[in-house]
Design a protein around this nucleic acid. Structure first.
Lengths: 328, 328
DNA sequence: TTGTAAGCGTTATCAA
DNA sequence: TTGATAACGCTTACAA
């Protein structure tokens, strides 16, 4: 029989007489034939593969996020796969990864942008390849995006601290080129301003976004004089670093310093200090990103870029010193 | 100029006169030409893509493991990418994922096997596709593997508990089809036996390998009568679940129950209770797996399967109740 | 109901 | 130093 016939029985794309079909199926089983997806992709110009550019899969925020994407993608079409890329927030690494993953002709790409590569990304979007920004976006780039209101979330979080009576509140600022962290610092400033507390630049300590660096930055926070009574951590590495710095000095949280952080952890409610945080819907961010991407992919939506903002939740536990109710 | 010429300047695969080369390069830039990796893969029967089957990327053990693979792969050849698959320990899901990822003609595959699909995997290995098992292996399957000595690690961990005087030691057993967990339980039995403590089946409580399930299993452990004074958790979900169960009841660790766990966490030394664990070299497991795979890929090694066993380390902190030295 | 053949964009062989 | 062309394995329009 002909290759066409085989193709049709494999894909069920046209009627094939039962006997021929049976023969084909038998041959397939006997030869352990497996359709060559590469040839298929070449012919159909569709790889059923999606690129995924995040900063670091060992950050639990991104691990959850990736699961959200994967689950949503499989819900739409189980034949799709994800190619994972960790930029580690480095523009040059991000770019090199883009180059290799684009050569593989992914059908679309979800990007948590490191912050640079603007022209590169602009060109990329210009090619018509479906692109969705997630968690952060680059102003001026015309692509779909799913984000959270970082400024508002931080405002609520820091305001909580203010209401507890804190006036000297340090900020541990992760050094990232993307917008999100800047917005968090703005939310911090807003909260101070709303409370009539003057913003003091010396209270914001900047660190590379890794635990080890955050530990030393946390230590700097503890050396500030007059000592702050509380600190706001702009992402989960900062939180981990600060708590470690406290712990290393034998200081206690919240007694010696109240701590609040951006981003939750799955175990944050069971280990001590129980962290008071604002939690991003990491899994849902992934799901929504995947859905935006698929809508573009299938041309179910063709208009101008959409920007989706998901809600955050303030989770008050104990590290802030509010011994109010402790949610699970 | 001809396609051949273009191909050769792109790949530097033969001498091209400077002027022609310049023209080609200019055209490439002008047209934003990007080589089609799919066509290339078809021609060269090589995709520069590696499949990766793990159980769940939100488990920090696997997140680290994946980073180890990625880093080692990029060290060997930065043009390679990883396709990530989360089997969630479900045989059928694992199999479906294999089917789609194999159709994409990955050059090799690193597998943390869920435990089933033996015949399927056997056939797969039979095709000659480079396969490396990691973290676990399936006895009888002839492929390279990187593992740790689970039995020995558990033995040392539980023995530590025994030396502290515990005689009634429960075990929280993650229900997984793979060998690793069984070996851990064996190590537990070995340690008991070596101490002359009779093994009591009622003290091993089995749970699905997810935090939520582990919480209820942990609760069952706490209901055991006479109450165990200590518990051994066979993986990090079990540990998390048990600590949560303790915390939910207002019980304290190690005062009310000593806890030891298999697998470390990056934050385990900074939050309380500080966990005493045996730590697997997750990152190194990934690296070694990637290197074994690449050696096969490049035919640098062609003999019989290799089995690599990496060392584990016992990290004594506080959850075991040994207020000895507390390592960072 | 089935078969033939073009064409997807490369690489590689062979010829010029 | 360069070019023409076959082949990779599939899908699909068209023919039988």
């Amino acid at each position: 029989m002909s290759v066409a016939t085989v193709s049709h029985v494999v894909n069920g794309s046209r009627r094939v007489s039962p006997e021929v079909k049976a023969r084909v199926l038998k041959a397939i089983a006997a030869l352990k034939y497996r359709r060559d997806g590469i040839a298929r992709s070449l012919r159909m110009s569709q790889t059923r593969t999606i690129g995924l550019m995040i900063s670091d899969i060992s950050n639990p925020f991104f691990a959850d996020f990736v699961r959200g994407i994967e689950d949503a993608v499989h819900a739409r079409d189980p034949n799709y796969n994800l190619i994972l890329c960790n930029s580690e927030e480095q523009e040059d690494k991000e770019r090199r990864l883009f180059d290799v993953v684009l050569e593989k002709r992914v059908d679309g790409i979800v990007i948590v942008p490191a912050g640079g590569n603007r022209d590169y990304l602009n060109d990329l979007i210009g090619t018509g390849l479906p692109v969705v920004f997630a968690d952060r976006f680059l102003p001026g780039l015309d692509a779909d995006a799913v984000i959270v209101d970082n400024r508002d979330a931080s405002f609520r979080l820091v305001t909580h601290l203010v209401r507890l009576g804190h006036r000297r509140i340090a900020a541990l600022n992760a050094h990232l080129a993307a917008t999100s962290i800047r917005e968090r610092i703005e939310g911090y400033r807003d909260a101070l301003e709303a409370a009539g507390i003057p913003f003091d630049e010396r209270l914001v300590v900047t660190s590379r976004s890794r635990i080890e660096d955050a530990v030393v930055a946390g230590s700097e926070v503890l050396d500030l004089r007059p000592a702050p009574t509380a600190a706001f951590c702009t992402n989960n590495f900062m939180t981990l670093g600060l708590i470690r710095a406290l712990s290393d000095r034998g200081l206690r949280c919240p007694e010696d310093m109240a701590v609040i952080g951006f981003d939750d952890f799955p175990w944050a409610s069971t280990f001590r200090p129980r962290l008071t945080v604002v939690s991003q819907p990491s899994y849902a961010l992934g799901q929504e990103a995947a859905n935006l991407l698929f809508d573009r992919l299938l041309k179910k939506r063709t208009g101008p870029p959409v920007r989706l903002t998901l809600g955050t939740s303030l989770i008050i536990r104990e590290s802030c010193g509010a011994h109010a109710r402790v949610p699970a």
